[in-house]
Write a protein that binds this DNA or RNA. Structure first.
Lengths: 324, 324
DNA sequence: AATCTGCCGTGACTTTTGTCAAACCGAGGC
DNA sequence: GCCTCGGTTTGACAAAAGTCACGGCAGATT
């Protein structure tokens, strides 16, 4: 039983000795709280306190292994069907569809660091998904990493823009960041040309094109899509692209079912990475949560932009049903 | 309540869908088993089973953060006192002294991967500690890593030798391995010279010397030390070195309190890395568990061979008391 | 020196989790 | 169509973990 009459000084507890010891016995040696209490000669309640302290201080890390998601039935199917390097499928209940976006983002944030290596140059697109992903990314330095903004900036009603997306990803990963200090879309092709010829901007584009991995989402082609709400495209323009067979938006460019770039009125006015360049990469990471985007995601895969896919169960099923 | 009359087929459970979903709800979303049972419409006992499955399959990873050990009171003190880059101190109870070696080895095995980066060339010494460490190391590939054997091989009564140590470390980390295919000690200096001049051996030595990080333990200078039991040194030789002020053995070489190499009868007959070279490295990782080795560890630190130290609480205290 | 204050540690109680044998289901063989 | 077999699910019970209000020591304050 616990000896009475002695009490540890604050520093002994804060100094971590006992807390770490307790955590070790519990989590590494697998003793239960009673055994630990006996061994350390304190009450079990105290053991509970120490363990709580250990958790509060972040000493205990619990996570689900990537294999749980990459080894998932649907993940394997996606991988084989579409020739991906890996797929990461988040589980999803019928009755919690609204949560899936958050889960996919969380999963992608957990997975991303393990897909990157020192020396990588990561091209980052923009969108709510990417923005949220950056938010959830836990700070973990990757040596000699550079983040490159793939699309010009564009203010949105939601408070994120391409430069914020890339900056945040860079910050979390301790990476250098090359931003594109231009709007994503300009009113006239002439102005876009002028800007692209500007030495500073040209240099930024040149730097941008040195990426070896990419991180992006695909937009859907509906009127409530971000392409429209952010002002990149007007409704008329969207309608025109739809008429040409557009099923998705990738880095601001419209693509058809086969993933081919649909050249149109916007391209000359757009400041963004070229889609042909997007195919030349070591790894292309697509994050896509909602089943409604299955078609767009399929197009991106068929177009050859994707090697790694993060998605939810429902979208995975939709893709396997619709593609193949 | 759980609906009766339906039951999952084996493949549905083995197929991981439900198991991963359950694990997610429990570990990521923090629901308790009752809430999960309700949500998934199964009994709580089933939830327990699923969670057990998830753990059995290795989907759940629980570990103590490195900060628990590097941020430890004694770790900070060691770091500051001896100017180390980092120290990793394992907690230790009075009544479990015999376990500390296992803990330190485990801690070192957990820490090591995070100290290595792609492209590194890791020199590995030998000894029971290093051998055990290799055993405990969990398989995790580090790109473009090369492991280099720092000391010639020597059969021991315990079944490990330097080549086994380095090979095992390399295997676990998915690294290339350069072994030294010679005995650690030869009967005559002349033979050692001859061997060193042999093209093949010379090339191995040359490769060995390209290390940028080192992993080693220090031996103590007692009659039951491995230096004697493995036949590297005779008792007479040991006695001679003790007379010269030897307090420890590092990669087969004797060092004094200041960590200086004590040149003696063995050196010309020895096939091992040069101690001067051991000082020229990005990182030197010393693993040492028993308090009796505090003196030897101190010497190694004073000698400038160490930047990272893994040890137990008792040895840490001994070092802080004895050195400074 | 007495008092105060802020943690620390504890026992009793509640909630959560783990165990196990028995019931149950579906698939295939007779 | 019935039966057996292997794995799944479950309810009842047991064990473990979490909570909380109170008692107590140590160092600071007056």
């Amino acid at each position: 039983m616990p000896a009475t009459g002695t009490q540890r000084t604050p520093s002994q507890v804060s100094g971590d000795d006992i807390v770490v010891e307790t955590a070790w016995l519990y989590y590494e040696d697998g003793l239960n709280q009673n055994e630990i209490a006996t061994a350390l000669d304190v009450s079990r309640a105290t053991v509970v306190n120490y363990l709580q302290l250990a958790r509060d201080r972040g000493y205990v890390q619990v996570r689900l292994a990537h294999e749980a998601f990459t080894g998932h039935r649907l993940a394997m199917a996606l991988r084989e069907t579409f020739g991906l390097v890996a797929a990461y499928v988040l589980p999803e209940r019928q009755d919690a569809r609204h949560e899936i976006a958050a889960r996919v983002v969380r999963g992608a944030a957990d997975w991303l660091p393990s897909l990157l290596a020192p020396g990588d140059r990561l091209g980052v697109a923009w969108g709510k998904t990417i923005y949220d992903l950056a938010e959830r990314l836990e700070a973990r330095r990757i040596d000699d990493l550079t983040v490159l903004q793939l699309v010009g900036s564009m203010a949105t009603p939601y408070g994120f823009s391409a430069d914020v997306c890339s900056s945040n990803v860079a910050r979390k990963l301790g990476a250098a960041c090359v931003n594109l200090h231009v709007p994503a879309i300009l009113s006239e092709a002439r102005i876009a040309r002028t800007l692209r010829d500007e030495a500073l901007i040209a240099a930024q584009f040149e730097a941008m094109n040195t990426f070896n991995k990419t991180l992006f989402a695909v937009g859907s082609c509906t009127e409530d899509s971000h392409v429209v709400s952010s002002g990149v495209a007007t409704r008329q323009e969207l309608a025109w692209y739809l008429g040409q067979g557009a099923v998705g938006v990738l880095c601001g460019r419209f693509i058809d079912r086969a993933g081919a770039h649909i050249e149109g009125p916007l391209d000359a006015r757009m400041m963004a990475v070229d889609l042909d360049r997007m195919r030349q990469r070591e790894a292309g990471i697509l994050v896509s949560a909602e089943p409604e985007r299955a078609t767009a995601a399929l197009a991106a895969i068929r177009g050859g932009y994707v090697t790694h896919l993060v998605t939810g169960q429902a979208q995975a099923e939709a893709m396997l049903a619709g593609g193949g």
